[in-house]
Write a protein that binds this DNA or RNA. Structure first.
Length: 386
DNA sequence: TTAGGGATAACT
DNA sequence: AGTTATCCCTAA
């Protein structure tokens, strides 16, 4: 068991008898009592934090899925062959019966089949001809999870030389057998945000692969009701708006104020949110979520540091208000120039409407990634008003 | 998808 | 306290 006196608990920020995650590179240290869920240890007694377990589960689930699909393919190939053999077999049988001939006269090519031609095998053939095909069809129309479960059970019952990934997967399932849903539900879609440790969120963004981005996105869209004190009517109205669009994160505005000051000070400098090569935002993605995500990306190193795990948590809170509204992001001169260029390029005479989406794409490398077509429109309106 | 209008954090 | 810039919602 990995306990340490050296670190600070990621939740209460105090030292003491801490569990330190054994996952390579994971800095998480936490009091067992602060976990909020039972601590998990592997066979060797090593502690793994919920995030790493979750990551592991996702990876293993993917492997299991691949394995299941491979099994399915093999099954279908098997079915095809079996079908062909059986159909021929049946034809031979029927012909033989019709002719009143001895069944042993069937062609040598099917000799291997005819040798087992008794009532039982005939039943088998019928079963193969009728039922399994339907089953396969049924499978393809059922949910993916069902498929995998079914195929898993196939695989585990007749497992010669079982895929190691599947073994791991099943091992994990046993480990989670006490009702924790991480494996039973599809891990790729099961994560809920409401009861999750923010430190896990911090973790998640360390490896910002598309799959996890998606998870995060879903979380962003499903979380976020203002909590705590009774909001004023205006705040409430705003919260209602925010509900639709963004992440519920509480925090102060220091970071953004600082950013604004920098923009002012440097004026011509390119103080935008840091640019990392990200896939283009999806239209569904809330920009506040994006800001959070990119904030996190930029704090990867910090979050890996054991020294200040909580600082990252505080900082990630600075991209939105508690109501969910995005914090104000001033336009840089570069953005403004890009916007002008875009408007110039896409404005057509006689058409009042401007294709803000196209303009956004046009300047996607220059605009902050959290900008939306509507932001461009608003900014242009503002610029024109001057 | 866009325009228009309202809300409000941030600034002066 | 007033103004501005940005964000967000809604209707078309």
């Amino acid at each position: 068991m990995d306990r340490s006196e050296k670190h600070l608990c990621i939740k209460c920020n105090e030292g003491g008898n801490l569990l330190v995650c054994s996952e390579n590179g994971c800095p998480l240290a936490i009091h067992e009592g602060c976990m909020g869920c039972p601590a998990r240890f592997d066979d060797a007694g090593r502690f793994y934090c919920p995030y790493c377990l979750y990551k592991q589960a996702v990876a293993e689930s993917r492997q299991a899925r691949e394995y299941a699909l491979a099994r399915k393919k093999a099954l279908l190939n098997f079915m095809d062959e079996e079908m062909m053999g059986s159909e021929q077999h049946l034809e031979e049988i029927k012909r033989a019966e019709a002719d009143g001939h001895d069944r042993s006269k069937v062609s040598p090519a099917n000799a291997d089949v005819t040798t087992c031609d008794d009532g039982e095998s005939r039943g088998k053939v019928d079963a193969i001809l009728n039922k399994p095909v339907l089953d396969v069809e049924h499978q393809s129309s059922s949910s993916e999870e069902e498929k995998i479960q079914e195929e898993e059970s196939h695989a585990s019952t007749g497992s010669e030389g079982q895929d190691p990934s599947l073994e791991m997967y099943e091992k994990e399932k046993i480990r989670n057998a006490e009702g924790k849903k991480i494996q039973e539900e599809d891990p790729e879609t099961s994560a809920t945000s409401s009861d999750r440790d923010p430190s896990l969120k911090m973790h998640e963004d360390k490896n910002c692969n598309p799959e996890e981005e998606q998870i995060q996105e879903e979380e962003c869209e499903t979380s976020s009701a203002p909590t705590g004190e009774d909001p004023s009517p205006t705040v409430h109205a705003r919260a209602k708006r925010g509900f639709k669009r963004s992440v519920q994160i509480n925090g102060d505005s220091e970071t953004f104020s600082l950013q604004r000051k920098l923009v002012k000070q440097n004026d011509k400098s390119k103080v935008t949110t840091p640019t990392v090569n990200h896939p283009r935002r999806s239209s569904r993605r809330s920009s506040s979520a994006l800001r959070t995500a990119e904030m996190l990306n930029d704090k990867v190193d910090a979050s890996r540091s054991l020294k200040q795990p909580r600082q990252s948590l505080v900082k990630l809170a600075n991209y939105t208000f508690s109501t969910g509204k995005r914090k104000r992001l001033l336009w840089t001169e570069e953005e403004e120039e890009t916007l002008k260029a875009g408007v110039q390029k896409y404005s057509t005479e006689g058409n009042k409407n401007l294709p803000w989406t196209k303009i956004l794409d046009f300047g996607q490398h220059k605009f902050d990634r959290t900008r939306t077509p509507s932001d461009l429109k608003d900014k242009w309106r503002n610029m024109m008003a001057k």
